[in-house]
Design a binder for these strands. Sequence first.
DNA 1: CAGTGAGCGAGCTTCCGCTTGACTT
Length: 778
Amino acid sequence: MEDNLVIVESPAKAKTIEKFLGKEYLVKSSFGHIRDLSKKNFGIDIENDYKPNYEVSPDKKKIVSDLRKLSKNVKTVWIASDEDREGEAIAWHLFEELKLKKDNTKRIVFHEITKNAILNSIKNSRDIDINLVNAQQARRILDRLVGFELSPILWKKIKPSLSAGRVQSVAVRLLVEREREVVAFKSESFYKITAIFNVSANDKIYEFKADLQKRFDNKEETLKFLESCKSATYRVDSVIKKPTKKSPSPPFTTSTLQQEASRKFGFSVSQTMMVAQKLYESGKISYMRTDSVHLSNFALATAKDVIISNFGDEYSKTKNFKTKSKSAQEAHEAIRPTSLNKMIVMGSDAEKKLYHLIWKRTIASQMSEAKFEKTNVNIDISNSNHKFIAVGEVLKFDGFLKVYEVTNENNDTTKTLLPPLNENDNLDVNAINAVQRFTYHPARYTEATLVKKLEELGIGRPSTYAPIISTIQKRGYVLKENREGERREFNVISLINNNITDEIKTEITGAEKSKLFPTDIGIVVNDFLVEHFKNVIDFNFTATVEKDFDEIARGKLVWNKMIDKFYRPFHKKVETTLENSGRKSGERKLGVDPASGKDVVVRIGRYGPMAQIGKSDDEEKPRFAKLTKEQHLETITLKEALYLFRLPRTIGEYESKEITVAIGRFGPYVKHDNKFFSLKKGIDDPYTVKLDRAVEIIEDKREYDRNKTIKVFDKDAEIKVLNGRWGPYISYNKKNYKIPKDLEPEKLSVDECFEIIKKVSKPKKVKAKAKPKTKKKK
DNA sequence: CAGTGAGCGAGCTTCCGCTTGACTT
């Protein structure tokens, strides 16, 4: 029997710590929070000073009862949850729920999983910090009040099942506002002038490029300038050399890891987290949900060894970074390999890639700066006040760049090696090119850049970045999409051999890959919230309440007073909004339908954005059509909307039955003899598809169904042997049963099928009893 | 899996932050 029980948050952490502590310590995990506010009545007694009503979460019941039993049999319980607000609350919930005693319960904290750090923490145990716990309770209760009061307003005023919250609603707002900037952006063109010069030195001729300082707004000015260049001479006015340096970035936090994995590998935020979780569970990296850039002394020392032995003394520069972000709670280390001398690990491709990236970033952070020599050359034009400027950059010492390439975001300027140039050198011009360029709208967010922005605003935590991105997509506020670019013409004017040429070229512009686009619902919900709850949707709301939470943590502010101060005016606003505000559907009148003379409007309907001809109180029923994925309430035109009403369309007859085409809940389809056949995505267009193609689709589906059916029985039509994605199975009363591998599906009899159904369904029922709460599906 | 958008009404949806399993019809 062990004397000591240590409780940490993560099972992987428990395993590691157990090794350090030896036999008299039993180390267990709480798997995060063990209880939460009840869902009934908000889980908050608002009349009674906001007294919270906590319930053990269903999936934590067993963990809690196991821990309770273990805690009864040991001398001392050490609660080692993280040293931050949430961790302190977990400690307190454990203390309460396990019914621990004050005299044999000790609270310990450590920031790094090293033997020294843990032994040290045991020597320096303390009590649970109730002020910090109260700060967490205030955070939790505020989020519940905001989320559970705002969401129902949306159900009533816009659409059921929608949601709003302190974090997600701001994320959506960022996307909506950015999208509006993009749509409103008016691109302007200008001419960028680049000269290619020749200079002779050491009996050789060198070629180099220089950009004109001035950009011309229009073609006339550009032509005028090029014309003047015909008679111009060029002379080096000044050569200025100066040393520059580039420093390595700090080691990874959750958000910077997500950004780099997105940029370098195209990983989604959740993909990065899943791979990192695998690496963490197999002990290859430190904890992956962290906002800290701190490295343990152990890590610093190993990094130094690795760098010196692989690259030499001059590459090592040991330093510990300080976390800039104000919201950081510093409970963990930065994300780093557990063994820095392992450059690569075994595992899936994604695991190998991500690990190596983490290794490189950690090692690079402990390496010296890269040194450059930068050269600026000003070139005079004999008959003009404008100047050409050539910029050269020579790497003098690679430093950290030896392991970590920095992806350059604006490779606009051509930084290269320049030939030897001296003041007053005369230059021959080879060519001068004027290329028409266009100003570009602000970039749409990717998952990773949205996380970066949220982190800057102090909104969300490392453990929630991935779930936030998934929530706003699940609610239908946001779509992650690719957009094809458009062809655009641009003008290139060149001066070569004193001869001006003028040509038009084309390029693809505006293509987007994996960008976040707000949907119509997202826009309507956002506008509603901004109109009525500006303070909660404010980008600084979180920062403001965080200040209060800090005051509570320092014992300077009473938590339920703080909540009350927020809640009173907030709740009043909720009530007046419920009472006074009308339904919001984003309705927009586009014009009049020439055929019927009735109004054409677009709005959000029960099933999403739609167009409508006529009103519901008209004698004739209004006509409805669903907007396509590419169409938006704010931008759709009357012509585009009318086009939608060309469906449903009758395109002919087959087997003496009508064939019609329309768009339904699951996309475009062909209907024949009361059966539905989906059109092929990206191939068939419901507005143009012809009869022979429709027949082909129908025949294809029939062929597919024939192959799907292996066997049917006369005895019982309900029972079928079918071929599915995972091999042959039996379908009976709309339920499916797998056929054991050793049986031949073609030879099964009805009785044998029932045999299988009995066998396969039995163990499931046993499981169902052990787990009485199965998920309800609509 | 399937085309809806009128209306009634019951019953449900929802927050943020901490952690990992489930289980492949």
